[in-house]
Amino acid sequence: MNLQIAKWGNSLALRIPADYVRQAGIKEGDQVQASLTIDGGICIRAAKWNRQAFARDLEGMRAAMPMGESVIEELRHGARY
Rank of each mutant, 00 (worst) to 15 (best):
Q31T: 08
M1S: 06
E74Q: 13
A53T: 13
I72L: 04
I5V: 15
Q33S: 10
S35D: 07
I44F: 13
I44E: 00
L36N: 09
N10D: 13
G60I: 01
I42Q: 08
Y20D: 02
M67C: 09
N2L: 15
M65I: 15
Y20V: 02
V32M: 07
G40K: 01
S70L: 00
K7R: 12
I5H: 09
Y81V: 15
A13F: 09
Y20C: 04
L14W: 02
V32S: 03
N2E: 14
Q23A: 05
V32L: 06
C43D: 10
A24N: 02
E28Y: 04
W49S: 08
H77Y: 06
K27V: 05
R76D: 06
L36P: 03
N50F: 01
R45D: 12
A13Q: 14
R80E: 07
K27W: 03
A18H: 00
S11I: 08
E59Y: 09
A55D: 06
R62N: 14
I38V: 12
D39F: 07
S70R: 03
H77A: 15
D19A: 13
R56Y: 03
A64T: 02
R80L: 08
Q31M: 13
D19Y: 06
R80T: 04
R62W: 11
V21K: 04
D39R: 12
M1R: 02
S70W: 01
I38R: 12
M67N: 11
A24E: 00
M65G: 10
Y20Q: 01
S11T: 14
L36Q: 10
L75T: 01
P66N: 08
D19R: 05
D30F: 10
I16S: 04
G68I: 07
P17H: 03
C43A: 12
G60P: 03
G60A: 08
K27H: 05
M61Q: 08
A34K: 10
P17F: 02
V21C: 00
Q33F: 09
Q31G: 06
R45L: 11
G9M: 08
A46M: 03
A47W: 05
E74T: 15
W49I: 13
I38C: 06
D57R: 05
L14E: 00
R45F: 05
A6T: 07
P17E: 01
K27D: 09
A18L: 10
N2C: 07
A34E: 05
